[in-house]
Amino acid sequence: MKIGVVVFPGSNCDHDALHVAAAVAGQQAVPLWHESAELQGCQAVIIPGGFSYGDYLRTGAIARFSPIMGAVQHFAASGGPVLGICNGFQILCETGLLPGALMRNAGLRFVCRPAYLRVESTSTPFTAACRTGQVLSIPVAHGEGNYVATPEALQEIERHGQVVFRYCNATGEVTAAANPNGSRHNIAGVCSEGRNVVGLMPHPERASELVLGSADGLQIFASLLAHCRVAVTL
């Protein structure tokens, strides 16, 4: 399949996402320049991590106005799978494709370390190959990953099963100690109401090869391939 990775000025995990999609998952992977409104026939879009537009104004606030995001919105509205990682998650929230927002980490510092995620929903294109309750080891690296929403919105998100990942400990317990940034309900990732748009703060592309410490992130890519009926064993 063909996977597009959006490149904004300041994206810095674009090469990593392209590497996993191409060299690890064996798919065709193309960069999608922010000034273009063309998705080049991609069957899935990844919005990578980084500091689009230098995080000026507010993370993701400027990126949402770029031409490529118009195309991504159309693609999402038609059910196309879209994955936002880290800054990509922030951009999707700013765009309104995902509910909630991401604030400064509760500790007020950037935090980079391995984290455990519990898969809360397998009914998304990016978790279809996982088990509910499965624990994945995938690192975080962000300064603004503190997921917030109004109490009403949180209730809605929970009720519709839109929480896709929660921070947990090694045995899958959702604890305060396992929460690296103060996110409400330990939320690490959510999906849209249509379930085809998923955003998460942790970096699955950094945990897709065992030599890097974990290959659990590959589950996200394996799910996408399964969703798009690509017969590959990862």
């Binding site: 810095n12 995990c13 090469h15 990593d16 590497h19 996993v20 060299a23 991590g49 510092r109 950037f110 935090v111 980079c112 370390r113 690192p139 690296a141 970096h203 592309e205 950094r206 897709s208 090869e209 030599v211 890097l212």
Partner: peptide, 27 residues
């Protein structure tokens, strides 16, 4: 100190901070 640094971006880090030396792979 080093948890404030991104130690993994570019997906080459075989050994980050906390050991004797840092190691990156050459893809």
């Amino acid at each position: 100190v080093y948890e404030q640094y991104d130690t993994m971006v570019r997906t080459n880090t075989l050994a980050g901070p906390g050991g004797d030396a840092g190691v990156i792979r050459l893809k």
